[in-house]
Amino acid sequence: MKILVVVPAYNEEKNILEVSKNLEKLKTISKYSIDYIVINDGSTDNTKLVCERNNIPVINLIRNLGIGGAVQTGYKYALKKDYDIVIQFDGDGQHDYHYIDNLITEIGENKYSMVIGSRYIGGLSNFQSTKMRRVGIKFLSNILFLTTGKRIYDVTSGFRAIDKKVIELFSQDYPNDYPEPETIALILKKGYTVKEIPVKMHERLNGSSSITPLKSIYYMIKVSYSIIVRSIIESRNK
């Protein structure tokens, strides 16, 4: 079983070395054989330099694509190199590498197609995000429940694993911005299985989130719209 950890990174010069060290550690302790690759999304800081100096495997996008395009590059690379499972793992240090094995097990042994690492179940995570953001996530979780009938709590989590079928699907079709909740709707409507498991998340090491308060209203509308539209158009496909 070939496993690839995809690390999207945009201006993460301060975090990427730490993240890669953790993943190197994981390679030695994991019961699975794991590779990882950083997708440098046209960073304007020294992310590229830091990666190359430290021999971190990195695909440097020749132009900035945004989070969706960057993650999808990882999926395309995985498809090309015949990987069986891909883990999406943030380059800002929010995600805890100790839980990667748990994600893999749910796919490898329990045959789920997508596994989501969740802050909101199991009580492992001290970091739960701000009050406002939690309300927003709850709202999106409800919309997803209404349109697909499946309750996922941490719909915006970017800590997730997918199997080969979904790698193929995502290589063809992946949203450009705010992809996480929409892709859950896509997967469920296509008839794949999704499981949410508890993980620990930290506050980001350095830098700030890409979603500013000003953008958050647009974010809510756009994500709600895309979940609803996905659940309509994808069910018609069947």
């Binding site: 695909i59 996008l61 694509l65 590059t73």
Partner: peptide
């Protein structure tokens, strides 16, 4: 055009790697 553009950027970047 955006979709095509995205695909080209991804393909070139992977090839370069």
């Amino acid at each position: 055009i955006n979709e095509n553009n995205k695909n080209i950027i991804q393909d070139i970047s992977i090839l370069e790697y």
